[in-house]
C-alpha cells in the first residue's frame, strides 16, 4: 500500500462525459510522480479528482489508508494535501510574506519557523518578503506558489504544470526546488508538459491517454521505453 493513492477513479465535469476512466495514481512519501500524456488526456482532471474539486463516480482516494473520497477540498487540505494550480496560483496583490501567511491559514501554531524554513528553501523570497507578488518575475512567482503550498507542511504536494511559461533556466531551477521538496519526505505528484525533463527528475511516471492509464513505471524506464518515446517524447 502506498501513502497516497487514487484508485480506479472515474469522473467528469458536472453531467458531462467521463474525462478520466478507471484511472489509478499512487505516490509515496519522498518520491516524485509525474503525470504525462497528450493534451486532453485528463492529467489535470486526475489532480482535481485527487483534490476533491470533482466528484468521483467510481473509485476512491486514500491517504495513509484512510478513505477521503467524500471530503471537500478544504478538508483534504487539512489532511495534508496541498495543491499548486497552473494559473492564478499566488495572491498577486499580497506581499510574499502575506502569501505564505495565508498558506498557513489552517495552522494554529507559531508559523514563523515554517516561514523561515521556506525562506531557507527559496532564498530569493526572503529578500523580497515585503514585495507585492504581482511585481515578481514568473520564476519567483512559482516559488511563492510552491512556498504557499508548503506552508501547511503537506505530506502530498500536487503541482499542475509548475514550469509552464518559464524559461529553460528557470525551469531547471524549479525542478531543483521540487527535488529539494521531495527530500523533505513529501509525496510530489506533478503534471508536466516538459515530459523528458519531468521524467528525468521523477521516480515514477504515469502516462495517461484519453483518461486511462496507458503506461506506468519508473521514470528512467519510461524514458527508455521506445513506445513512450515515440508517442509522447517526440523521439
Amino acid at each position: 500500500m502506498t501513502f497516497f493513492e487514487g484508485n480506479n477513479m472515474t469522473a467528469g465535469y458536472n453531467n458531462g462525459p467521463d474525462i478520466i476512466n478507471s484511472c489509478t495514481v499512487k505516490a509515496d512519501k519522498g518520491e516524485i510522480v509525474a503525470l504525462l500524456g497528450p493534451n486532453g488526456a485528463g492529467k489535470s482532471t486526475v489532480m482535481k479528482a485527487l483534490l476533491g474539486l470533482l466528484k468521483l463516480k467510481k473509485g476512491n482516494v486514500l491517504i495513509n489508508g484512510e478513505d477521503i473520497s467524500n471530503l471537500k477540498p478544504q478538508e483534504r487540505v487539512k489532511k495534508g494535501i496541498s495543491f499548486v494550480p497552473q494559473t492564478r496560483n499566488v495572491f498577486a496583490e499580497l506581499t510574499v510574506k502575506e502569501n505564505l501567511e495565508v498558506g498557513a491559514f489552517l495552522r494554529t501554531d507559531n508559523i514563523q519557523n515554517v516561514i523561515d524554513e521556506i525562506f531557507e528553501l527559496f532564498p530569493v523570497l526572503s529578500e523580497k518578503k515585503n514585495q507585492i507578488v504581482g511585481e515578481l518575475s514568473g520564476g519567483q512567482r512559482q516559488q511563492v506558489a510552491l512556498g504557499r503550498a508548503l506552508m501547511i507542511k503537506p505530506s502530498v504536494l500536487m503541482l499542475d504544470e509548475p514550469t509552464a511559461g518559464v524559461s529553460p533556466i528557470v525551469m531547471d531551477e524549479l525542478f531543483e526546488h521540487i527535488i529539494k521538496i521531495k527530500k523533505t519526505n513529501v509525496a510530489v505528484i506533478m503534471v508536466e508538459q516538459n515530459a523528458k525533463q519531468a521524467l528525468t527528475i521523477s521516480d515514477r511516471g504515469y502516462v495517461l491517454v484519453t483518461g486511462q492509464n496507458k503506461f506506468e513505471g519508473l521514470g528512467k524506464d519510461l524514458l527508455k521505453d521506445p513506445e513512450v518515446r515515440r508517442s509522447f517524447l517526440g523521439a
Binding site: 495572491f91 502575506e98 501567511e101 501547511i152
Partner: peptide, 18 residues
C-alpha cells in the same frame, strides 16, 4: 489578510483553507 486574499484570488483562498 484572509479577506484580502479572498478578494484577490477566491479559488486559491479556498484551497488555503479560508
Amino acid at each position: 489578510t484572509s479577506m484580502r486574499a479572498y478578494s484577490d484570488n477566491e479559488d486559491l483562498a479556498l484551497l488555503s483553507g479560508i
